[in-house]
Design a protein around this nucleic acid. Structure first.
Lengths: 179, 179
DNA sequence: GTCTATAGACCGATAGAC
DNA sequence: GTCTATCGGTCTATAGAC
């Protein structure tokens, strides 16, 4: 899981290109060109394209996992939820160019379903946001909250807005939606 | 714009495959196989892959445009907004497997920015939802509303929910968010 | 860790018969 | 409207030198 400097260059370039062209529209040659090395040098770090996609998805997820862990350490469930939502808003705004495309790419969504690491984070996320209420209303409401945050940051309607303005408005709405 | 039967088969297969594999991850061979013809037969309908992608995006957008036109014919702005939101919820739930992936694919998002038809629909959508208020709050709120609807329907948290339950919950939230 | 060079499959696209 | 056959190019992936 700990990446070497060379692996980090590969993953960073991959995340950027996946957001720009989609996973299926990104070749190893593109990644190599973006870094300024040859394909063979990329293959020295990862043996298949799938491994790169997985590493890129894990790198993005690691940031969410970090926010999640911090939130779980909060005093009360209510404080935990607030901390989590604020952290997710920060994450989404910070990565507004890349997060959305990657989260929605069909190939990566497939990984989400297949690998336990992703499911575990989703379970923790769900538990923190809605506790033990597994009814339809709570599930839809949580899906809306998460989709709204990750989707709104890359919407054309807000493309020309400052990060700070976007963050403030988004957080305000998220708090309202959570009540 | 009016599609022949053969063109319709191509576009329908393309929409399905784009949702499953992404635009960049879908080849003309895949589309041909899905229909049960050869690549050359597909090329007889559309001369390039880009034309197919464009036709697929237009087909999806045409459904939104139809909802938009109906809403614009409503008596008051308030009624128009309500009709529009209800129509969009229906559209999203109906196409919950495909709509989300296609709306977020980087290649199609690029088309959205380049082609006037998409921008026109977006302008009408925006006018109907927020009128002449072009401030940050209104823009973020509208982006949230649209992102929430299109993103929530394909969220893993609601994957096992009935269409009817999902539609009801989603509509309830949308109305609340619109106030 | 990076390179050159290459293998074999698949890509988008075209020609021409039926 | 669909087919067979083919083109040049790019794809993922590997071998082996430095």
């Amino acid at each position: 899981m700990a990446l070497t400097a060379a692996q980090n260059r590969v993953v960073t370039a991959a995340v950027e290109l996946f957001a720009r062209n989609g996973v299926g529209g990104t070749s190893l040659q593109m990644i190599a060109d973006e870094i300024g090395v040859t394909k063979a040098a990329v293959y020295h770090q990862y043996n298949t394209k799938d491994e790169i996609v997985l590493a890129a998805a894990e790198a993005e997820l690691a940031r969410l996992e970090s926010v999640l862990s911090q939130a779980e350490a909060a005093g009360s469930p209510k404080q935990a939820r607030a901390a989590l939502v604020a952290g997710i808003v920060d994450l989404a705004v910070e990565g507004r160019r890349t997060v959305g495309s990657i989260l929605n790419d069909p190939v990566i969504v497939g990984f989400f379903a297949d690998h336990r690491m992703f499911r575990d984070v989703m379970t923790r996320l769900r538990r923190l946001l809605i506790g033990d209420d597994t009814g339809p209303e709570a599930r839809v409401q949580t899906a809306i909250l998460l989709a709204a945050i990750s989707g709104a940051v890359m919407h054309p309607f807000v493309a020309d807005l400052d990060d700070e303005v976007l963050r403030t408005q988004l957080l305000h709405m998220a708090v309202r939606l959570l009540q």
